[in-house]
Simulated scan of single mutants.
Amino acid sequence: MTALHDFSLAVESGEFITILGSSGSGKTTALNALAGFMPVSSGDIRIGGRSVTNLPPERRELGMVFQNYSLFPHMSVAENVAFPLKMRGTARKDIDGRVKRALHAVQLEAYRARMPRELSGGQQQRVAIARAIVFEPPVLLMDEPLGALDLKLREALQFEIKSIQHQLGCTVVYVTHDQREALAMSDRIVVLRDGHIAQVGTPLDMYDQPRSRFVAQFIGQTNLFPADLGSAGQISIPGLGISWTDARPATRSVPYFISVRPEHLTRRPGRDGDVRIDATLDEAIFLGDVIDFSARHSSGTAIHFREPRIASAPRLQRGDTVSLAFSPGDAALVPDL
């Protein structure tokens, strides 16, 4: 069985690139092949212009951070971090300084004498990061490193990992199934689907300009409406009884959908060129800074919209009629791929 198909990707020096996909998409396979833990049946892997395809993991000079930390329980924090240096034969007089710098980068200098069992999950993960960067690798591989942590700690460590990367200037290849994490941390995202690359782009491109129905659904929340393409750029959503003109090119060889993000559907007064939809409110979910709404068009089509929480705004109740609008420029035309 082939886990990856025609996987071709160039990563720039100093770039933070995330491989994003659901379980079984091939993202961990890609990382393991890069690390040397899994052979490739064809193709070449090059780091800094040098082919490493046939080199064992220890000769690729890559830092690696796993989800399960993989710390040595019988070693102190400092000893864990020093281990890669000792394995590389680094002079003893240089080891302590490097360990100190690595622990400073992850804000754990005061914990150097502690054992892993004396640390929280977040602290253990930071030790794992320090161990991966202590020998200053040009490329740092991270396999779901925050997956076992609670939400607030994940968000805090996202900032720390980005800060460490900027300090070191290293290249990071990061694997996750969490699309919010990918959007927050990446310079570019690679979306994998069944071993194929579905799209590569910046977080902004992925969110605003998805190239397929799959990517539009996978990255963030969206409303997807089956669309008809008419002549002269005419686009209509028959189920909602709305249409407008769009100059973007599209082929009629596959079905198309219109993707509208919930925050682009608003209750603002009508503006020239806006597309308007009337619906009945079903539910409202309070999320602190924003409120998510679920409504339904008279055709039965579900519509989701999102608004910032404003204390002075009148509260919507279930059964209220809402008039929503979006700009055609905020709607993505995506093929059913």
Results as ranks from 00 to 15, higher is better:
Val11Leu: 12
Leu71Val: 01
Leu224Glu: 12
Val77Ser: 09
Gly147Met: 04
Asp178Ala: 10
Pro56Ala: 07
Ala284Ile: 09
Thr222Cys: 14
Glu136Cys: 02
Gly43Phe: 05
Ala78Tyr: 00
Ser8Leu: 05
Leu333Trp: 10
Gln123Thr: 08
Asp274Gln: 13
Pro262Phe: 06
Ile95Cys: 02
Leu141Asn: 03
Thr28Asp: 06
Leu192Lys: 09
Ile258Leu: 15
Thr18Tyr: 08
Pro138Thr: 08
Thr171Leu: 00
Gln209Lys: 14
Ile189Leu: 09
Ala35Thr: 02
Ile17Ala: 13
Ala250Ser: 14
Val40Glu: 10
Asn80Phe: 07
Ala332Ile: 07
Leu316Gly: 03
Ile17Leu: 15
Ile258Gln: 12
Thr18Asn: 11
Phe37Asp: 01
Ala279Leu: 05
Leu240Val: 06
Lys162Phe: 14
Ala182Tyr: 07
Ile219Trp: 12
Ala113Ile: 02
Asp289His: 14
Asp96Leu: 00
Val11Glu: 11
Ala132Thr: 09
Leu55His: 02
Val173Gly: 02
Phe37Gly: 04
Val215Phe: 11
Ser23Cys: 11
Gly195Asp: 06
Asp278Trp: 00
Val77Asn: 06
Val215Gly: 10
Leu151Phe: 01
Gly43Ser: 02
Asp246Arg: 06
Phe83Lys: 06
Val127Ser: 11
Leu140Phe: 05
Ala184Asn: 04
Val254Trp: 00
Glu12Ala: 13
Leu168Asn: 04
Leu151Met: 05
Leu103Arg: 04
Leu337Lys: 11
Leu71Asp: 02
Tyr207Met: 10
Pro57Ser: 15
Ala247Ile: 15
Thr266Trp: 04
Val134Ala: 12
Ser163Gln: 09
Glu118Trp: 01
Met185Cys: 09
Thr245Val: 14
Leu168Gly: 10
Leu333Thr: 03
Leu85Phe: 10
Glu79Val: 07
Gly21Pro: 02
Val65Gln: 01
Glu118Met: 13
Ser312Ala: 11
Gln317Trp: 01
Leu103Glu: 09
Glu118Gly: 00
Ala198Glu: 15
Val200Gly: 08
Phe293Tyr: 15
Ser70Phe: 05
Thr222His: 01
Val11His: 13
Glu12Val: 01
Val190Pro: 00
Leu140Gln: 12
Arg271Thr: 14
Gly147Gln: 12
Ser51Glu: 07
Ala78Gly: 12
Ser8Met: 13
Asp330Met: 01
Phe66Cys: 06
Pro39Asn: 07
Arg101His: 13
Asn32Gly: 03
Ile164Phe: 06
Pro238Ser: 15
Ile219Pro: 11
Val275Tyr: 10
Asp292Glu: 14
Leu141His: 01
Asp320Phe: 03
Asp194Asn: 15
Ser294Val: 14
